[in-house]
Amino acid sequence: MLSRLALRSELFRVAPLCANAVRTTQTKPAVATTNESIIVPGFPKPNGQPQPNPYDGPERDLVNFPRMVRLEEPAKTRYLFVPEEWFEVFYKKTGVTGPYVLAAGVTTYLLSKEIWVVEHEFPYVLATIGLFYVGWKKFGTSLAAFLDKEIDEYEASCNAGRKSEIDGLKETIEHQKKEIWRTEAQKHVIQAKRENVALQLEAIYRERALQAYNQVKRRLDYQLDLANLTRTVQQRHMVNWIIENVLKSLTNEQEKQSFKKCMTDLQALAAKA
């Protein structure tokens, strides 16, 4: 009991309201998928699914039951209203005058036997025939032209929406074809871009290779300079050390002897000169 009350309380009404809000934002109307009540061939069902046309099945017999077509012109008639076929029935048996002879004969028979009684309303028949004849001769052509124009305009207005839509779609197709033609240029553009990128990659590669070469050369040069410097320093040190030790080992006697020797060498040189 309490749970039922709780379900009916305002707190629990929030959820259905939210569900409704979500539903109204959907693009398609929320209709049960089982609703088959509105089925018109060629139109989508309310749930948005296309529906099969019941007349386009494989068992359709188009030979004996072709599509109905509205006639452009009505069946041929003579004297405004007598079907042409009624005359053609007589032609094989009686020739072209047969139907007229029959009509005249029947009329004469009816009048002479007074089956068709000539009473006070008989002239109305003749008057009606006369009115139709005068109207036909006087207004027939112009009225027909006016009505034809009207019906043509009406049909054009009925077809205008469909026609404009077809024209629009054709225009779109043309536009799309042009766009396809245009996108062929994109192939060349992309090819050029690829080549450009390849060139850039090559340039970067070469730049980096040069950088690596330079770095290696710098390090090698450093090692070379280091080795040379070490050897120079060692050599200088050895030379200094040897000279120092030699000078240290020299005594005064030896210095005097060498000095004397130098003097004699100089005298000898002077004598030669």
Partner: peptide, 21 residues
């Protein structure tokens, strides 16, 4: 044959008239 075609004539009218007469 006579009423539905696009360029119908006065024939159906006369048919009705004659028939009713």
């Amino acid at each position: 044959k006579y009423v539905q075609p696009k360029r119908a004539t006065v024939a159906p009218l006369i048919h009705i008239l004659a028939g009713s007469m």
